[in-house]
Design a protein around this nucleic acid. Structure first.
Length: 822
RNA sequence: GCGAGUGUGGCGGAACUGGCAGACGCGCUAGACUUAGGAUCUAGUGGGUAACACCGUGGGGGUUCAAGUCCCUUCACUCGCACCA
């Protein structure tokens, strides 16, 4: 054994050895219990960043731990390799996007390998690989057959900088999620996935995911945004239908105006050839020119458009307005204004002096419309509502909805905030949408046998960044699969979120050439037992992946209804309180750290510095601390190396020091096991291993050749190495082989602890007086109460402190604490 | 505005069902070894005090023999959504 810890040569050696032994390759084994551990696959930017290191270190600990616990562990890795950066690089450097991507994958894979991660690389996938996107296209066609993929013209979000449309989910505060350019609205023909058909199931099934963070579930819930109410049909005087959605049909007698969204087509019709036409159109133009955020931030504005509606229940004649606060893409793009019971309507009505009519009275004080300072949205009884007066409002909701239904003027309805998923992108580097346009036959899906529709590699980019597929004759022109006539291909590609919505299924059968995956294999491995990644994917990726899984379930391709059983959202890696980023200049490169300290130290620090869900502050000194720790482990092993070479481990104790050591060994096993298995508290698990090393060191320093119990030391060192194995796999394997072991430590069973060894014959109890600690005393374990009492009261210090005081209560927490109340 | 979360030494963080606040690591102080130390080892390290006492988990109040932990209230910060009818 070498005296020094030479991490670099040792890490390379073991990485090669593991690869040679195919230690991390797995196959279905229906006899054994499986565990599918997945970390979010990276975009191959070419360089690993600390966020990746954190993500994959966490995952690797769990994977290695579960393997040692005896599970058949699937732990795959791949590449989310379609996307804009490759295209930008292609334009800038005149390198084909495919080549750039491939180089990056090679580079990043090399970096990942230096971390010593236990991936089954035989299952590697890259979404930009034709063997992969063939099946993405195939799935698109299955969606199409089921009516879940459709094309429509719609006002869509357009990012002028990326020159493409974006899904609603990709617009953050009115700007492109990627480049932060403000998005425009454009009317375009686009492909959508009908995710709204699954809104209810996506919402409902969140309840079946107790292993997901509450925060993520709430975010998804809000995003789906289900609300129950009714659609009510008002009529204009001229007989047009004015359908509105409301959650408060009980307030219908309080309607004092109707409002339409400026984009609503009916507006033009209603003002045509009237004196209102000009001002209304000017108003609409003004509103449309604003971005969504500007519009949300401006005060409520609106105009009367000269028309009236009739309230279907009260018969009241109600003015119709157009206003900037009504949104075209929610509900029917039209709202009934009830100022007394809706804050927005209240603000609007106050500004434009529209009547405020109270129709819900709370118990107690009496509300008057002209005296209100804000709307009253809460519960109460109906007033000024004809025959509904006196009803509690919840009952009124039911009754009014029913009555309207009978008249054919309304119905119960559930609205969702969730929109259909816009998947077309006017970009080159993505999965081509397998559709052909034929003049005779119209929209024709590419037959499955003709897949994949190959993305050409050598393409000519224009400086504008427009998709080169549009001008690539070889790609564009084809024959119609239906009639054999001339046809053109769809030149839009799919949102890259489509690619990543099913990759976890492909891993279960990554090389399948005849299907996206084999159902039996997928059924063995699914669901993913533990998914690990950043919270930034809480809505987009996680919702889309759930949607895909449900569709695939309905298509009978899998029996999984949810993709991810448990979800761990890891915190960010910060430096100087801010997220590491090139622009801030606070990036610490994982490569350099690994070179300087080794992968084991890097992994250890990142796991030790904070619990996984919290943000982690990078600290060079802390890294050194972890490096020192591994050196301490090394030196201790070196010290005992020759002594215990030919000795078997043993648990026989001869004195107090031995007993203390044995207890600490079992204590560490228990702590690490519980922290990893139950809580993912790797930071405290590592600190427990540190404590064990501290105890072993103390043992070394307090014993001499005569008194040292070498079998026990060996037992301690073997267990230390076993406990360390998931966290610092290289040094662990090296130390394991130094202990004379012939096979990898990673093939060993996880150590078990003995409850009995943890028990103490004597316990130190705290003696409190009125809740303040006054003394610590040693007693035999489980001493009966009367004896304990007697012994405590006989103690000198306690006697003194109790002088002249009367004990009113004597509280005992067994083996822990005594509290005397005086 | 709505929803969620976080506040503990100089710093990162421990404290499981209410039961010794500050494990472990960093930093700092002193010492040992040493030509040297940015290596290693030993001791110490919440504030306060000569030593006790006493004070300490964002602030205020409460429940309890006992509160970082439970309840009420308030402040600060972080994240998500945001005119969703």
């Amino acid at each position: 054994m070498q005296e020094q810890y030479h991490f670099s040569q040792l890490e390379t050696k073991w990485q090669k050895d593991w690869e040679r032994q195919e230690l991390d390759q797995v196959a279905e084994d229906f006899e054994r219990e499986k565990y599918y551990l997945l970390e979010m696959f990276p975009y191959p930017s070419g360089h690993l960043h600390m966020g990746h290191v954190r993500n994959y270190s966490i995952g690797d600990v769990v994977a290695r731990f579960k393997k040692m616990e005896g599970y058949n562990v699937l732990h795959p890795m791949g590449w989310d390799s379609f996307g804009l950066p490759a295209e930008n690089a292609a334009i800038k450097n005149r390198v084909p996007a495919a080549l750039w991507t491939k180089d990056n994958i090679v580079n990043m894979k090399k970096q990942l390998k230096t971390m010593g991660l236990s991936y089954d690389w035989e299952r590697e996938v890259a979404t930009s690989d034709p063997d992969y996107y063939k099946w993405t296209q195939w799935l698109f066609l299955e969606f199409y057959k089921k009516g879940l993929a459709y094309k429509k013209k719609a006002a869509v979000n357009w990012c002028p900088s990326c020159a493409t449309v974006l899904a609603n989910e990709q617009v953050v505060e009115g700007a492109c999620e990627r480049c932060e350019t403000l998005v425009d609205k454009k009317d375009l023909e686009q492909w959508f996935f009908k995710i709204t058909d699954y809104a209810d199931r996506l919402l409902e099934d969140l309840q079946q995911l107790p292993g997901w963070p509450e925060k993520v579930k709430i975010m998804q819930e809000n995003w789906i945004g289900r609300s129950e109410g009714a659609e009510i049909c008002f009529k204009t005087e001229a007989g047009h239908d004015l359908k509105v959605f409301t959650t408060r049909p009980d307030t219908i007698f309080g309607v004092s105006y109707m409002v339409l969204a400026p984009e609503h087509p009916l507006v033009s019709e209603l003002v045509a050839d009237t004196e209102y036409e000009e001002p209304v159109h000017a108003f609409i133009k003004k509103v449309k020119s604003m971005t969504n955020i500007e519009r949300a931030e401006t005060e409520k504005e609106g105009l009367f458009i000269g028309a009236y509606a009739i309230n279907p229940l009260s018969g009241d004649k109600i003015p119709i307005w157009v206003a900037n606060y009504v949104l075209m893409d929610y509900g029917t793009g039209m709202v009934m204004g009830v100022p007394a019971h809706d804050q927005r309507d209240f603000e609007f009505a106050t500004k434009f002096q529209l009547p405020i009519k109270v129709v819900i009275q709370p118990d107690g004080d009496l509300l008057e419309g002209n005296k209100l300072t804000e709307a009253f949205p809460a519960e109460g009884r109906l007033v000024n509502s004809g025959r509904y007066d006196g009803l509690p409002n919840e009952q009124a909701i039911q009754k009014i909805t029913r009555d309207l239904e009978q008249k054919g003027l309304g119905e119960k309805q559930i609205q969702y905030r969730l929109r259909d998923w816009l998947i077309s992108r006017q970009r080159y580097w993505g999965t081509p949408i397998p559709i052909v346009y034929c003049e005779k036959c119209g929209v024709v899906p590419v037959p499955a046998k003709d897949l994949p529709v190959i993305l050409p590699i050598q393409v000519a980019f224009k400086p504008s960044g427009e998709s080169p597929l549009k001008t690539n004759g070889e790609f564009l022109n084809c024959t119609c699969p239906n009639c054999g006539g001339e046809a053109t291909r769809e030149t839009d590609t799919m949102d890259t979120f489509v690619d990543s919505s099913w990759y976890f299924l492909r891993y279960t059968d990554a090389k399948n050439a005849v299907a996206p995956f084999d159902r039996e294999k997928a059924d063995y491995w699914m669901n993913v037992d533990q998914y690990i990644g950043g919270v930034e994917h809480a809505i987009l990726h996680l919702m889309y992946a759930r949607f895909f899984t449900k569709v695939l379930f309905d298509l009978k391709l899998t029996s999984a209804q949810e993709p991810f059983q448990n979800l761990l959202t890891q915190g960010m890696v910060l430096k100087d309180g801010a997220k590491m980023s090139k622009s801030k200049g606070n990036v610490v490169s994982p490569e350099e750290i690994i070179e300087q300290y080794g992968a084991d130290t890097a992994r250890l620090f990142i796991l030790f510095a904070a619990p996984p869900e919290r943000d982690l502050e990078w600290n060079e000194k802390g890294v050194e601390g972890c490096f020192r720790f591994l050196n301490r482990v090394w030196r201790l092993s070196y010290y005992y190396h020759e002594k215990i070479k030919n000795i078997s481990p043993g648990e026989v104790t001869k004195n107090e020091l031995d007993k203390e050591l044995l207890r600490s060994i079992h204590g560490a096993i228990k702590k690490v096991t519980d922290d990893v298995r139950l809580r993912f508290n790797f930071n405290t698990a590592i600190s427990a291993i540190m404590e064990l090393i501290n105890t072993l060191q103390k043992y070394r320093d307090h014993t001499n050749v005569k008194s040292e119990n070498l079998p026990l030391v060996r037992f301690g060192l073997e267990n230390t190495v076993l406990l360390l194995a998931p966290f610092a796999p290289h040094i662990a394997d090296e130390l394991w082989s130094n202990l004379g072991k012939k096979t990898s430590v990673h093939l060993e069973a996880w150590p078990k602890y003995d409850e009995k060894a943890l028990e103490l014959a004597e316990v130190t109890m705290v003696v409190q007086i009125n809740g303040k600690v006054r003394e610590r005393l040693n007693f035999p374990k489980d001493l009966p109460e009367p004896q304990l009492k007697e012994l405590v009261l006989e103690t000198e210090k306690i006697k003194q402190l109790l002088q002249g005081k009367e004990i009113t209560k004597f509280i005992i927490v067994p083996n822990k604490l005594i509290n005397l109340v005086v």
